[in-house]
């Protein structure tokens, strides 16, 4: 094994892993605040990618400019889904029910996308998509670097919002304990709705980068959601930093195994590592040990 391969895998891990972490950040926030496992997160990414695609094909809007439209659009879609379906779930088995409801939402979105865009693979285009520059012996694709910067910016903004704003305090209070948060006057319902909206909104940028770097169709959501779920479990549910580290680890392991052994074992190796890590730390890398609630 040579140093270039290692560096190249590390580069892929950091650049692409950050984008996965961005998509997963919505999932981990939603789980942390609301105890909701949003299986539809993968299909949100695909939906966002198709929105960018539609804007590009029909109105010739550049992918990055299009984010100004798709981000608010995904936010609104998230808010509506939360209000109509998620907010109604009550009772002790809320988390279990959320898996089913979001799965049904996933099927509806996937079916609609399949109907509208057919099941042929598409990929987002732009003059910068095929271009790259080289430092040393390592190639940097423009779109990958842009994706990393965008993900870093948005994750930074989320972090700032969580830890430096009044709304962030409410979110973290709801994360820690919903009942107590409500007792000190936090509108937990509103916080939940906005969090779900934000979780969907981050998929706009994530989906655009995903769509520009991968050929996709409506059923790409299966692969995406399994990766996103394992990222938040590996990182520890509710932890943004954990999601970032897990995203990078996932892509890095896949690349390394691909170089050293064979690309066909890349994904398998990552899942094996995930299972091994959970044997050692069931709560994930940055997760807190679950205390007894109620």
């Amino acid at each position: 094994m040579n140093a270039t391969a290692l560096l190249s895998a590390a580069k892929d891990g950091i650049l692409t892993g950050a984008v996965y972490a961005l998509m997963a950040s919505g999932l981990t926030l939603i789980f942390g605040v609301m105890d909701i496992i949003n299986l539809a997160q993968g299909t949100f990414v695909v939906l966002a990618a198709y929105l960018s695609y539609a804007l590009q094909v029909h109105w010739h809007i550049d992918l990055f400019v299009g984010l100004l439209i798709t981000t608010p659009a995904m936010f609104i879609i998230g808010v509506v889904i939360e209000r109509v379906f998620i907010a109604r779930l009550k009772g002790p088995d809320r988390t279990g029910m959320s898996i089913l409801v979001t799965y049904a939402v996933w099927l509806l979105i996937e079916g609609t996308l399949d109907l509208v865009f057919s099941s042929n693979d598409v990929q987002l285009q732009g003059w910068y998509v095929p271009k790259s520059f080289t430092i040393g012996a390592i190639h940097f694709g423009y779109i990958y670097v842009a994706g990393f910067l965008l993900a870093a910016l948005l994750l930074g903004a989320l972090y700032f919002m969580l830890y430096r704003t009044r709304f962030g305090v409410s979110v973290r209070a709801s994360l820690a304990d919903q009942t107590s948060a409500a007792l000190v006057g936090i509108d937990v319902k509103r916080v939940s709705t906005i969090t779900f909206g934000l979780g969907a909104a981050v998929t706009a940028a994530g989906g655009m980068i995903y769509g520009a770097t991968n050929a996709f169709n409506a059923s790409s959501s299966y692969d995406l959601i399994s990766r996103l779920l394992t990222i938040i479990v590996l990182g520890g549910m509710g932890s943004l930093g954990g999601a970032l580290l897990a995203g990078i680890v996932m892509v890095f392991i896949g690349d390394m195994v691909g170089v050293i052994w064979s690309p066909i074992w890349s994904t398998t190796a990552y899942f094996v590592v995930l299972v091994l890590v959970l044997l050692w730390r069931p709560q994930g890398l940055f997760g807190k040990v679950q205390a007894r609630v109620a």
Binding site: I37, S226, T230, V233, I264, T267, T268, F271, V275
Partner: peptide, 19 residues
Amino acid sequence: VRRHTFVVITIAVFFIFQL
């Protein structure tokens, strides 16, 4: 692990077998 993580591990194990 507890319930919610269990769901995810079963999915991961599934992918290991399929692949």
